[in-house]
């Protein structure tokens, strides 16, 4: 009888673990690939410009951000889940900045898919988002990122040749910003 109970428990645990792997695999469909170049307008706001380490005007490539790792949040001002996630995303950003080991090494940006500059501004003001947000009104960046559902998180490493290697992707929200940051740090090798 004891053996059967053990067998039952072992099987249940194995199946849960297997499903966890499958879910992780599903969330990481583009992990390991190189993200196509993304060009964004240099922020007008000096704080945002300084945060990204940009000195020129006009536009910049994502690989020009002064960091080793960039976390990209794909959001939409109209998306209810993105709105609900906003406080946790802000907390993640604060944690990144607070950690002296990470300061300057990891930066965060948001891409408002299908959003005009005004719509992005409404989102930024409502949730007091401190990291730079960029509109993607014509969904051009959304296409590069695989037309993912929002919110979506993409972690990229800036390689020495200027390419962006995706080391992590996550669809939907995260429960615990500290835990999420731990995953990012571990997978990025920072």
């Amino acid at each position: 009888m004891k053996k059967r109970v053990l067998l039952f428990v072992a099987l249940a645990v194995c199946l849960v673990a297997l499903n966890g792997v499958l879910v992780a695999a599903e969330e990481s469909t583009i992990t390991g690939t190189v993200l196509a170049p993304i060009k964004l307008p240099v922020p007008q706001d000096p704080t945002a410009k300084n945060y990204l380490g940009l000195t020129e005007e006009g536009s910049f490539a994502l690989s020009q951000i002064k960091a080793q790792v960039v976390m990209i949040e794909i959001f939409n001002m109209y998306c209810n889940n993105c709105q609900r996630e906003a406080p946790r995303v802000n907390e993640l950003y604060q944690l990144m900045n607070k950690d002296p080991k990470l300061k300057g090494k990891i930066k965060m940006i948001g891409i408002g898919v299908g959003n005009t500059p005004l719509e992005v501004e409404v989102f930024k003001k409502t949730y007091k988002v401190a990291f730079p947000l960029f509109p993607d009104a014509d969904y051009a960046i959304h296409k590069i990122c695989g037309e993912v559902r929002t919110p979506y998180f993409i972690g990229v490493k800036i390689k020495t040749d200027g390419s962006l290697r995706v080391f992590y992707t996550k669809e939907g929200g995260f429960q615990d910003p500290a835990q999420f940051l731990k995953i990012i740090v571990a997978l990025s090798g920072l």
Partner: peptide, 13 residues
């Protein structure tokens, strides 16, 4: 028992 275990695991998932 294996079948019941599988169903229970799927419920947990």
């Amino acid at each position: 028992e294996l079948a019941i275990g599988a169903i229970a695991a799927m419920c947990l998932v």
